[in-house]
Design a protein around this nucleic acid. Structure first.
Length: 198
DNA sequence: CGTTGGATTGGCT
DNA sequence: GCCAATCCAACGC
């Protein structure tokens, strides 16, 4: 995707990332997956790492759009975000779940799991399956050779459902989680969508 | 410098 | 449903 795709507000980019293909090609092997679930994080957003301003950890969020923001959490997991908005703006879209496409065998090895639905169905799982760790924090998604996002097929609005973001304790009133309706590869269990009247 | 708890997951009750 | 795992950023003193 071109740089201009990322140079917009998070809640606009988040649904448009659905159906796109995230690619990790660091070791010459393509590990690819179709994005099926995302979450938007804004600057005036108490749930966002950027809410209290720039720090060493969230520096990538405040950099130019079209880069990756990878952070380490709970002592064992990585989470990957697409940095959006202009340079100096601390906004990003969290990649929460994807459908494994190429390199499923390698993903199974990295995840130590066989069932394909358990390879990328969660932000920590997705990073583990794709081999994404903090060495990719700040990686350029547009001009780089490690990780990038291919066009895939955008998902029509009527196939997208929204809900509360997962795992946060503040900013829960914002329905900034986007999922492909009825897709079997979205995160499950404690991360089920919360339908609300429309 | 010490403390607290996290944009999660997997395993067990 | 509950909790441990296991690191380290953020914040307070």
């Amino acid at each position: 995707m071109p740089r201009t795709f990322y140079d917009r507000v998070a809640k606009e980019v988040a649904p448009e990332l659905l159906g796109r293909i995230v690619v990790h090609g660091t070791d010459g092997v393509r590990l690819t997956a179709r994005i099926v679930e995302t979450e938007a994080y804004a600057m005036d957003d108490p749930a966002s790492h950027a809410f209290r301003g720039p720090t060493a950890r969230n520096a990538a969020m405040f950099g130019p759009p079209g880069h990756l923001y990878v952070y380490f959490v709970y002592g064992m997991h990585f989470c990957a975000n697409v940095v959006v908005g202009g340079d100096g703006v601390g906004t990003a879209v969290l990649l929460r779940a994807a459908e494994p496409l190429e390199g499923v065998g390698e993903m199974s090895r990295l995840r130590k799991r066989e069932r394909v639905r358990e390879l990328c169905s969660g932000p920590g799982r997705l990073c583990q399956a794709l081999g994404i760790d903090r060495s990719l924090d700040g990686a350029d998604l547009v001009g780089g050779t490690d990780v990038w996002i291919e066009e895939g097929s955008p998902v029509p609005r009527e196939e997208i459902v929204t809900g509360r973001r997962v795992g946060i304790r503040v900013g829960m009133e914002r329905d900034w989680r986007y999922l492909i309706r009825d897709d079997p590869f979205v995160s499950q269990g404690r991360a089920r969508p919360r339908p609300r009247p429309s």
